[in-house]
Simulated scan of single mutants.
Amino acid sequence: MSWSETALAALAVLAVALLLAWRGASRVDRLHRKVAASRIALDAQLVRRASAAVELAASGALDPASSVLVADAAYAASDAGPVTEPAAALKMDGLGPARERAESGLTATLREALEAPEAAQELLAGPSGEVVAALGAAWYRATLARRFHNEAVAQTRRVRRLWYVRLFHLAGRAPMPRTVELDDVLPHSLEPHGG
């Protein structure tokens, strides 16, 4: 093999390696954007759920003590720091421990107020049925949004663990994304095909 043939073969190998690195970096970038978008969508659904909980507390459908507890938990979840700036979503750090605790607290309070199937059915059949149904729908969408976000994070983590992504540092300086872990289990009476 002559010098020119060796150089041509090395150039071809280099071109293929650069192409593969570019494709890998593009894939990692796409996955990071997917995680950021899913986090923003999750935040929007959690805010919608908190708003629906405040509306339920203000509707007079619950007893006064439950109304106060639900409103307090909903305001705590709202005040715990929704994503308001696009740069905050790009941090890839989930929602943060304070927000996750507040959202789990809202879930526990709502479940306590609505867990009894007969009470939830009574609320759904009563004059505030629309408010309870809106809360159930918002809660279900928030649950789905969290699942989609966590799946996007898991997919990104799998790709970032590949040997060539780590070797060539294709993720750049982007932090490793984190899942959102919170209690968001709906009461059986509010599940779409449940109660």
Rank of each mutant, 00 (worst) to 15 (best):
L90I: 04
A102R: 03
Y164K: 03
E181F: 02
G24W: 02
E100W: 01
V165Q: 03
R158S: 15
L106I: 01
V13S: 11
E118A: 15
R101Y: 04
W139V: 08
D93V: 04
V54W: 00
R158A: 15
L19S: 13
S51Q: 12
L95W: 11
R111I: 13
E112W: 05
A134V: 07
S104M: 06
R166I: 08
Y164M: 14
D72N: 14
L19K: 00
L18K: 04
G60E: 02
M1G: 14
L167H: 12
E5P: 01
W22D: 05
A87W: 06
L106M: 06
L42T: 02
H149C: 03
L123P: 08
Q121A: 15
P175V: 01
P82H: 08
W3P: 05
T107C: 14
E112H: 14
A53L: 01
V54T: 11
A102M: 08
G96M: 05
A21D: 08
E181I: 07
L123Q: 06
K34P: 00
A76L: 09
W3F: 10
A152V: 07
E85H: 11
L42M: 09
A50P: 00
G126A: 07
S67A: 15
L46Q: 08
E151Q: 13
A71I: 00
A21Q: 14
A76S: 13
S4Q: 08
L144H: 06
L11C: 13
G195V: 09
A53H: 00
R146P: 02
L106C: 00
E5G: 05
E115H: 14
T107K: 03
P86T: 06
M92D: 05
D93M: 10
A113H: 03
S59K: 01
S38K: 04
A171S: 13
Y164E: 12
L123A: 14
E5V: 12
D183T: 09
A134F: 09
A21T: 10
L186G: 01
P117A: 12
A73I: 00
Q45F: 00
L110W: 02
A89L: 09
E130W: 04
R178M: 06
Y140E: 10
L42K: 01
R166K: 15
L95G: 10
D63C: 02
K91D: 12
L162C: 06
R146C: 07
T143A: 13
P175E: 04
V16C: 09
G136W: 10
L123V: 07
A12N: 03
A87K: 12
T6G: 07
E115S: 14
A9M: 11
E55D: 09
V180W: 02
